[in-house]
Amino acid sequence: MFSNHKYIAFETIVIKEIRRFARIWLQTLVPPAITITLYFVIFGNLIGRRIGEMGGFQYMEFIIPGLIMMAVIQNSYSNVVSSFFGQKFSNSVEELLVSPVPNYVILTGFIAGGMVRGLSVGAIVTTTSVFFSDLNIQHPIITLAVVLMTSIVFSLAGFINAVFANSFDDISIIPTFVLTPLIYLGGVFYSVQMLPPFWQFVSSLNPIFYMVNTFRYGILGSSDVNVFWAFMILAIFIIVLYSSCILLLRRGTGIRT
């Protein structure tokens, strides 16, 4: 396939993905914004006042990066998992599979779709956060890099979930029983330095912990983790997940008979 044809195919997939979530914006864009606003009001404003400082910052300031990252992670993941599984379920994925679009273009298109939704919701949450606290981004490049890479990681993870899913239950199990606990235990609402050494070690095994803290470093300039290692971990996740997705597409797992 010529490169301009590949680009047209990629663009088609991305536009289709954006149209899909934009068409149902009441389900895709508004609920996360409302949920996160409630977090700001309840945890940041009402309870946060009593907590005082966390990691050297006002509690509201402390939780903002984690809540933005939570929105990006959940929405990048859910966009890809629901879209690709939906296409599997309706068999419309066959449109793509019989066409000459290379596997990596299909995958990149879905990742881009997941990133656009994840970052759109992230932008809505960031804008909302301005009403609750001043947002002075200390390291813009690190902030941007970590949010983009995190969005890629969870878009890829969502794709793998969709490939193996056989029912709508299968696409909600991982977000409910794996993703949500990892996010909540990933230092969104607290600093791991508050934890006993054993639980600090357990937290260090949670990849989301590195993502949230690196993002917090980008915004606040303070972090519980080594930023370099955090980027290394993100890069390794992207490489491993991307390779796995390509392998699954090549084998036709879950999509070809």
């Binding site: 396939m1 044809h5 047209i8 195919a9 536009i15 068409r23 939906g86 309706s90 449109e95 793509l96």
Partner: peptide
């Protein structure tokens, strides 16, 4: 039937054209 039934008729055909570059 193997198209997304929530999409518009034109969008389905246009998307297929896009997949073929």
């Amino acid at each position: 039937i193997n198209f997304n039934q929530f999409e518009k008729v034109r969008d389905i055909v246009m998307a297929q054209a896009g997949y073929y570059g």
